[in-house]
């Protein structure tokens, strides 16, 4: 596939935006202004960037408990996203959701969920809705290697296949379900091959290479929009940090971390060099984009910090929608 320069630039921009956003979240956590826990997306940025660049605005994504990156890559307002992480009333969920439920419906995010593998059935429903309403919208559903061991994986892949739904299953295989290595819990060499049992075309890509993720997603989206049904893409990637905020991930062997966390494997470096090599960006332009993103993230952090907490009695709001 030949990719135009604009797309390469976009892939770099989105990958970097997620990186800078998550670095800021890490800093804010250090400042002790983020209540609760966090599952950082650092290291996996190329997956969200590659997938969302292949989608249009009205396409949907279903996120996970490690969802900041998905939401930011899909085009979320960063002010509302960071404010949500800080539990502020200006947050996209008015402080009701936080990190595990960070969501912005207006840019096509169906939700982030705290229950591993619970997003798959919801993605089936959204894709069925796209199909029944006769739109050409598609749904990309993110989930981790661990989720592929849950019952909903089988149920949902099956349903998406029998109904030829416009769905792209994105497995972010970061090798660990919390602290448990996937190779202990999955007998096959890849997650992707599990899709064979449901007659779903599947492919394994380098999840740290935004272009590779993008290209695989473009093919899958083409099939989905043409009514040819779902595709599963396994993106092999790695967490830069632990599972959650207090996990130092000491259980990962040194040889493995050395490889995955090397400069060589860094998602931002990979797409940046590619874009520069192919003439989509100059070094100066790349720096300029970085400066702009960093400034926006900084502003968003200021906005979030300065925002008020919700009033305690707002606890009672939004349980039910008003009946018309």
């Amino acid at each position: 596939m030949t990719v135009d320069k604009k797309t390469l630039k976009e892939l770099y921009t989105r990958t970097l935006k997620v990186r800078r956003f998550e670095e800021k979240v890490w800093d804010l956590f250090g400042e002790n202004v983020v209540p609760g826990t966090l599952h950082l997306y650092l290291g996996q940025e190329a997956v969200a960037a590659g997938v969302t660049t292949a989608l249009k605005k009205t396409d949907w994504i279903q996120s996970t408990h490690r969802g900041h990156g998905h939401v930011v890559a899909k085009g979320a307002d960063m002010n509302a996203a960071l404010a949500e992480l800080l539990g502020k009333e200006t947050g996209s969920c008015k402080g009701k959701g936080g990190s595990m439920h960070i969501t912005q419906f207006n840019v096509g995010v169906l939700g982030a969920t705290g229950v591993v593998a619970s997003g798959l059935p919801i993605a089936v429903g959204a894709a069925l809705s796209c199909q029944m309403r006769g739109t050409d919208d598609v749904v990309a559903c993110f989930f981790g290697d661990g989720a592929s061991n849950n019952g909903t994986f089988g149920e949902s892949l099956n349903m998406s296949a029998i109904w030829k739904l416009p769905l792209i299953w994105i497995v972010e295989n970061n090798l660990y379900a919390m602290g448990t290595p996937i190779k202990m819990m999955c007998p096959s060499a890849t997650i992707a091959q599990r899709a064979d049992g449901y007659c779903i075309p599947n492919v394994v890509v380098d999840g740290n290479n935004a272009l590779a993720v993008y290209e695989a997603t473009v093919e899958a989206v083409k099939r989905a929009r043409a009514g040819e049904g779902p595709t599963l893409i396994e993106c092999q990637t790695y967490r830069m940090k632990g599972h959650s905020r207090f996990d130092a991930a000491k259980y990962r062997p040194e040889k493995e971390t050395k490889y995955w966390l090397s400069e060589e494997r860094d998602a931002v470096r990979i797409i940046r060099e590619m874009a520069i090599e192919q003439g989509a960006l100059t070094e100066t332009q790349a720096e300029k984009i970085d400066a702009k993103i960093s400034k926006d993230v900084e502003k968003a952090a200021d906005f979030a910090k300065k925002s008020d907490f919700p009033k305690p009695e707002e606890t009672l709001d939004d349980v039910f929608a008003e009946v018309a």
């Binding site: 939700g111 059935p121 919801i122 429903g125 809705s129």
Partner: peptide, 10 residues
């Protein structure tokens, strides 16, 4: 879950 996903998308 399919009902949920369909319900939130129209």
């Amino acid at each position: 879950g399919t009902a949920v996903g369909a319900a939130i998308t129209g």
